[in-house]
């Protein structure tokens, strides 16, 4: 009974959310002023630049690459609505005791399940828009060697619970997919706050409470000898699109997970296509790893604040607990062993 109530509520919430959203393809057309629909007039700041300020959420149901067996670029609206309904229903279901999924707090209790987040309806079958087949381009030989070396180094480091440094960057509270860059959604709290001053755009990423400070006054890039986990970003306006170029990554950076090299050049583009949609597009140019640049696009949906302090490292009891747990497991295993002769 309660389970059905949860599912019904999740679906109802979800249905309310999508009633107010125009399908993305149509929105795109409207923004470009074709097919008789009026072009969107973006609100402007006193300096004339578009106003992107506010809270935004980039939760998505769309995978980075096109799923196997799908050849087209877009689903129909009906198909996407059905996919999202099913995902919401699954998330609303109770987990089964004794399964891995059950060894976790209930997302619903904390409002964190994906179907509770504002989501911009996206009819694309993949976030990747270029290459047109929706897949990453082929990897170069050097790229394969680089990633094989990384896998080898991980193996040599031992099991994931042997040391804090063997855990993913997210568990160590160093970097998460929401921060990137590029900024991609994770399981929850996919919220961002954008503020704009005349020569600076700041994006506060909820997860890790990460500040991305992007100068838009033409300040030159850092010398190649200075490398940063989130790279170094420079912004400029291209008409009504904010263009952010990021270089100077260190090897402990987000897109290493995707196979990229630290010499990757990232270009992100923000265009506001409606009051509640910020279109985010990024291009990865990494000739060491991929035979050609590739691009992906995901719409961000207007969200609400506040963004409460995400002091992850300070509150990271989990990392201590899981390391201690592994050491206790090993101790128990040693004590169980019969005495050696």
């Amino acid at each position: 009974m309660l389970r059905r109530l949860l599912v019904a509520t999740a679906l109802a919430g979800f249905a309310v959310a999508i009633v107010h959203i125009a399908p993305l393809a149509a929105q795109g057309q409207a923004a470009r002023g074709s097919a008789g629909a009026p072009a969107y007039k973006v609100p402007r700041l006193p300096d004339g630049h578009p106003d992107f300020q506010g809270f935004w959420n980039n939760t998505t149901y769309t995978p980075l690459e096109r799923p196997k067996g799908i050849d087209r670029e877009f689903f129909t609206k009906e198909e996407v609505v059905e996919q999202m309904k099913r995902a919401a229903a699954e998330e609303g279901e109770q987990t089964t005791p004794g399964t891995i999924a059950d060894v976790h707090y209930d997302f619903t209790q904390f409002g964190l399940d994906r179907s509770q987040a504002p989501v911009a309806l996206n009819l694309r079958t993949s976030l990747i828009v270029d290459p047109a087949d929706g897949h990453l381009p082929p990897m170069t030989e050097e790229g394969k060697r680089l990633n094989a070396a990384r896998a080898e180094a991980r193996k040599r480091a031992g099991a994931i619970t042997d040391a804090a440094q063997n855990q993913p960057l997210s568990v160590r509270c160093i970097l998460m997919d929401r921060d990137g860059p590029p900024m991609l959604a994770g399981a929850y709290n996919n919220n961002y706050q954008i503020v704009q001053a005349p020569d600076t755009v700041m994006i506060l990423v909820e997860m890790l409470h990460s500040p991305r400070i992007i100068p838009t006054n033409g300040r030159p890039a850092l010398p190649a000898s200075i490398r940063q986990i989130e790279g170094s970003s420079r912004g400029r306006w291209d008409g009504d699109t904010l263009v952010i170029e990021t270089t100077n990554f260190t090897d402990m950076f987000m897109f290493a997970a995707q196979g990229a090299s630290a010499d990757m050049k990232l270009t992100e583009r923000f265009t506001r296509t409606s009051d509640d949609t910020l279109m985010y597009r990024f291009t990865v140019d990494d000739p060491k790893v991929w035979t050609r640049p590739w691009s992906a696009e995901v719409p961000w949906k207007k969200s609400i604040g506040p963004i409460f302090e995400h002091a992850c490292h300070e509150g990271n009891y989990s990392l201590t607990n899981l390391l201690r747990g592994a050491r206790e497991d090993e101790k128990r295993a040693r004590e169980k062993k019969p005495a050696s002769n």
């Binding site: 619970t161 042997d162 040391a163 509270c173 100068p215 940063q228 390391l323 201690r324």
Partner: peptide
């Protein structure tokens, strides 16, 4: 003049978690 990244977490992990290393 600009803020450079000073993410000091990787610099203190051995200090905080070193005694829990296998």
């Amino acid at each position: 003049a600009q803020l450079l990244e000073f993410n000091c977490i990787p610099f203190v992990e051995d200090l905080i978690y070193g005694q829990l290393r296998k």
